[in-house]
Amino acid sequence: MGYILNQKYFSIKYSFYSYEDITFGNLDNPNLFARIGDKITGTFHVLGYSYGVPVFSLEGIKNVLIVLVVIIFIYCCCNIIKNCKDYSSIQLNAVIFVISSILFNLFIFILTDNFVARYFVPVIIWIIIVFAAYLNRKAELLWEKIVKLGIGVVLAFYMFIACMHTVQWVETIKANDHRMEAIAFLKGNNYSFGYSTYWNGNIVTALTNEEVELANILSPETMDYYMWNTNKEYYVEGYHSRKCFIILTSDEVEQYAECPVILGGNIVY
């Protein structure tokens, strides 16, 4: 189903990697062990690991919990396999599916050049099944009950800290405040289509629910299209016939101050 949706619908409308774009990489560059390490550390980043943060901080505590979660996951997998007779066939099949999916995706990502840490998200999210299966098993011995209680506490604390960190980041960073002012101006002056570099283009399009559509360009100097993750229709001649604009950051304006687009354009905001 995922393949059909990806290949037969989304890839027709949007530009992104499809299954045909996956290629085997050169295992010597970087070397095989570096590739393996890179993919394994990618799982930590998916879970929220942050580097360069103080140990005694919210992010630092979260990092410690992430390491514990990975250790707990490995322990739960080993325990379930060892005591497979204590689990139902549905639970075992689900756990085998999760483990197989993680190993298969690791194998593919190691051999190919198409890896980004977030690609692990659809697989890693299924580790919840492993935790649920383990915690659902009735513990007979006292030490087993203590271990289960400890695992439950760690997982709950990790989820709480991760949520708190996300809330803290959203409330303090306010990453899109400066964009919202520009968006209000564009809407108020009936600008609905324009051009921008990637990290502004897609974000503004998403924030406005496509009321303001931005086609991506590599730079204002060349105005070459960068179609990644955008609607292919934006780049079709005649798609938009009304007034359009180019939106740039102050750094981009300074960097490309001498290019024709900036020299010949009218500054409206």
Rank of each mutant, 00 (worst) to 15 (best):
A34H: 11
Y51V: 14
E144I: 01
Q168P: 00
D21Y: 04
A117S: 08
I128Q: 09
I129V: 15
I262E: 00
K145E: 01
N29H: 14
N231C: 12
I128K: 10
D251Y: 13
F131G: 04
G37E: 06
N79A: 15
Y3H: 05
T222G: 03
K243H: 10
F185Q: 01
E252H: 06
I81N: 05
Y191Q: 09
S241P: 00
A34D: 13
G60R: 11
I99V: 15
W228M: 14
M180E: 09
N200P: 01
T112Y: 08
S219M: 07
Y239L: 10
R242S: 15
V170K: 11
F104T: 15
G238S: 08
G2M: 09
G42E: 02
E211G: 06
N79V: 06
N6P: 01
N29W: 08
G37F: 06
V69W: 07
Y226H: 14
I36T: 05
T172W: 06
K148N: 04
C78T: 04
A215F: 11
L68E: 04
C163F: 13
L248G: 03
I72A: 05
F10C: 08
S11L: 08
I173L: 13
D38C: 00
L65N: 03
H240D: 11
S100C: 15
E213M: 15
Y3F: 08
F157W: 14
N114M: 05
E252R: 09
L142T: 04
G152E: 00
N31T: 13
A133R: 00
A215K: 10
A215P: 08
K187L: 08
Y14T: 12
I203E: 11
L135D: 01
V154E: 02
M1P: 11
G42L: 02
G52K: 03
V98D: 01
I247E: 04
N26T: 12
N229V: 06
F131E: 08
K85H: 07
V67D: 08
L103G: 07
F16Q: 13
V236I: 15
K13I: 13
L32D: 06
G265Q: 02
A94Y: 01
N6K: 08
P220F: 03
K145H: 01
I129K: 03
Y256W: 11
D21R: 06
G48H: 08
Y256A: 05
T166C: 08
T172F: 09
E140G: 07
P122C: 11
L141E: 04
I262A: 02
N189Y: 10
I99L: 14
T222K: 12
N79R: 11
R35K: 15
K145P: 00
I110N: 09
K148Q: 10
A215D: 09
V53N: 09
K138A: 11
M223K: 12
K62I: 07
V64G: 09
L149P: 00
